[in-house]
Write a protein that binds this DNA or RNA. Structure first.
Ligand code: MN
Ligand code: MN
Ligand code: ZN
Ligand code: ZN
Lengths: 143, 143
DNA sequence: ATCATTAATAGTAACTGTTACTAATATAGC
DNA sequence: GCTATATTAGTAACAGTTACTATTAATGAT
């Protein structure tokens, strides 16, 4: 894994991120890793997520909202965010390979990538629409 | 304009945002408005942008990076962000109306909207690629 | 026009997510 | 085992934004 040393902290952070399919924030992952390494520091989680993303082992997501999220799946894929509970899920949707080329032709930028994120209501929140309980707002749903 | 009072601060903020095509951050707009209303407070700019966005007069963008940007154009359109200088421009690209429906069918979310943002290199930065001067990094280019 | 009501303001403090710093510790190579 | 140095825990600093508060000003009624 490049020139990164093999520390227990780094190993557990990666293990737990791979296990989770929830695209956690640094703090969410910190709380989970803490159960296995109680004395780990939040800074260590941030630093390792950054390093792992730099070396392309994981992916840093730039979803709506203020918090960065992390994803152990590095392949191209899109995400859905529930506007009710803030949950971020993978979406099994074909990757739009031709978009960048079309967009380059449409304007005067040299397009190198695109970010597509859907907003919607997850099955859980949909079934609780009338009840309104058990559906904690995770983050201010901007726009 | 709803139940919003007509103050000089609010009027100038909106005027300057409409004039600009640069999708400024709150602070960038603050610096511009300050030339006309020197004693205006940054909080006033934030509060008014928020209120104007709530009442759909303007649009709050959730582009990559940490800073929110604002847009007086409320119609559906996509944006390009220059990875070199951070500039955000409109892209004259047809709006993908069928995407939400397709994405709803692809997963188990009820999709209500999508956000598509392109990354690329603007004409200015492209012509300065070798020189590297006059091309100020506006924000840390994450991912 | 004067007044009362109350939204909006300037100025500042507080907050949130993240990054930077530092002295102590642990890893990897010899 | 020893050395060089990457990594760590703990904490301070930082950036962007929001919340608070006393004062000011827009509105609508008299
Ligand atoms: Mn994913
Ligand atoms: Mn725009
Ligand atoms: Zn939900
Ligand atoms: Zn540029």
């Amino acid at each position: 894994m490049g020139n990164l040393r093999d520390t227990s902290q780094r190993r557990v952070i990666l293990e737990e991120l791979v296990r989770l399919k929830t695209h956690p924030t640094a703090n969410e992952l910190y709380e989970i890793v803490r159960k296995r390494i109680p004395k780990i520091s939040l800074g260590t989680v941030y630093r390792n997520l950054e390093l792992l993303a730099e070396s392309k082992v994981i992916q840093k997501l730039d979803t709506a909202g203020t918090k960065k999220r992390f994803d152990a799946m590095t392949g191209d894929h899109y995400h859905v965010r529930c506007v009710k509970c803030g949950k971020v899920d993978d979406l099994d949707f074909p990757f739009l390979n031709s978009l960048n080329k079309s967009a380059t032709l449409a304007g005067n930028y040299e397009i190198i990538s695109h970010r597509l994120e859907f907003e919607g209501i997850c099955p859980e929140c949909r079934s609780q629409r009338l009840v309104g309980k058990n559906c904690v707002e995770r983050e201010s749903n901007s726009g």
